[in-house]
Simulated scan of single mutants.
Amino acid sequence: MKKLLGLVLLMLILISATKFASPKPITMHSIEGTWELQSFYSYDDGINVSDTVPTADGYRQVKMFYNGKIMWSRYAPQDSLEWFGYGTYRITSDSLIETLEYASSPMMRAMDTLRVFNFELKLTDDSYSQISFDEEGNRTFSENYKRID
């Protein structure tokens, strides 16, 4: 009986020790899903938000992330041009890298010199911001999205 009690006590100590010895892994939020643009931030000093601009009436921009692929489209009532793009993406805990493979004609002209877009990423379960920065690493503006699916 003493051996059984000792064995049970030893097992409880080992189980308790492993709970304290191995911290929970940090879980990242998932960007997979469908997102709609809500607003833009401006950063005058490269650190703090200086202005928030909501999207204009009728303006819609939607991004879809799935299985390493991204597709986005934009509708602006005052703009007769089509805007969309398709490519791949990857995220880390604090960055979003989009590589466009093809896009609408206006976007292809705009992408003539740039096809890989690097953003600082702020991601939660229901929202994310992709923050652009200048050559010195200072924040310039962000697009702020909410999850719609």
Rank of each mutant, 00 (worst) to 15 (best):
M1R: 14
K2F: 12
K3C: 06
L4F: 12
L7N: 10
V8A: 15
L12W: 10
I13L: 14
F20G: 15
S22T: 15
P25Q: 12
T27I: 14
M28C: 07
M28F: 09
H29L: 05
S30C: 04
S30P: 00
I31C: 01
E32W: 04
G33E: 00
T34K: 15
W35L: 01
L37T: 02
L37Q: 02
S39G: 02
Y41P: 02
Y41S: 07
D44Q: 11
D45A: 01
I47G: 03
I47V: 15
P54V: 10
D57C: 02
Y59D: 02
Q61L: 10
V62G: 00
K63L: 01
S73D: 02
R74T: 09
W83F: 10
F84N: 05
F84Q: 07
T88M: 05
Y89F: 15
Y89S: 04
Y89D: 01
I91F: 01
T92W: 06
S93K: 14
S95Q: 14
S95V: 08
S95H: 13
S95N: 09
E98G: 03
E101R: 09
Y102W: 14
A103F: 03
S104N: 08
S105Q: 15
S105A: 15
P106C: 07
A110L: 15
M111A: 09
T113F: 06
V116R: 14
N118K: 12
K122N: 14
L123V: 05
L123H: 07
D126W: 09
Y128C: 05
S132C: 10
F133H: 04
E135L: 08
G137N: 06
G137K: 03
N138K: 12
N138T: 07
F141Q: 11
F141T: 10
Y145A: 02
